[in-house]
């Protein structure tokens, strides 16, 4: 079956590729354009490791075909730090030891990036509910929740400053 031409904007850069329609967005990011920060953990839409922002909204890149997203704006974990400087959420992850093996981390960061954008002052319950879409086997979540709440405060302080 024929290949199809698509253009996706990923982290502000346009990528035009001829691809097999069945290629998932996750595989497109990882293997077609070499952005391997997005990880595939289950390929059936439960673990959330592959979460990216699709036109600003979190989504599982294993449950989307790249052809569906022709013309879309995709944001991945690679976009978070600026010039190698960790952003506030990333810093909070390091300070609170919110990652161990680091495999689920990119998905966690993308989910929380959306959450903190849409809910600048989330409750712990909202953080935990929202993280329900991201599995972590190493941390037991506590440090991730702490990091998210701390980041919310520091982002608020940064906005006021």
């Amino acid at each position: 079956m024929g290949k199809q031409k698509v253009t996706l904007r990923v982290n502000g850069v346009s990528y035009e590729r001829e691809i097999d329609p069945r290629m998932t967005l996750g595989d497109f990011l990882r293997h077609e354009i070499g952005l391997t920060g997005t990880h595939l953990g289950c390929e059936h839409g439960v673990c959330g490791a592959c979460t990216v922002l699709i036109n600003g909204l979190s989504g599982r890149s294993c449950l989307a075909f790249a052809v569906q997203e022709d013309g879309s704006e995709i944001t991945t974990v690679e976009a978070l730090a600026e010039n190698g400087e960790l952003n506030i959420l990333q810093q909070c992850f390091q300070e609170h030891h919110a990652l161990q093996c680091g495999y689920c981390t990119p998905g966690m960061l993308m989910t929380l990036t959306e959450l903190l954008r849409d809910n600048p002052k989330p409750s712990e319950k909202l953080v935990r509910d929202t993280l329900g879409g991201n599995l972590c086997r190493c941390t037991g979540y506590a440090a991730i929740v702490d990091a998210a709440l701390d980041a919310a405060q520091r982002l608020a302080a940064a906005r006021e400053a």
Partner: peptide, 21 residues
């Protein structure tokens, strides 16, 4: 001590087997 592993992993620059091309 904060982990020296973290900066790479937080930026999607980890090197897992499937990242090796």
């Amino acid at each position: 001590v904060q982990r020296i592993e973290d900066p790479a992993l937080l930026q999607g620059k980890g090197r897992f087997v499937d990242d090796v091309k």
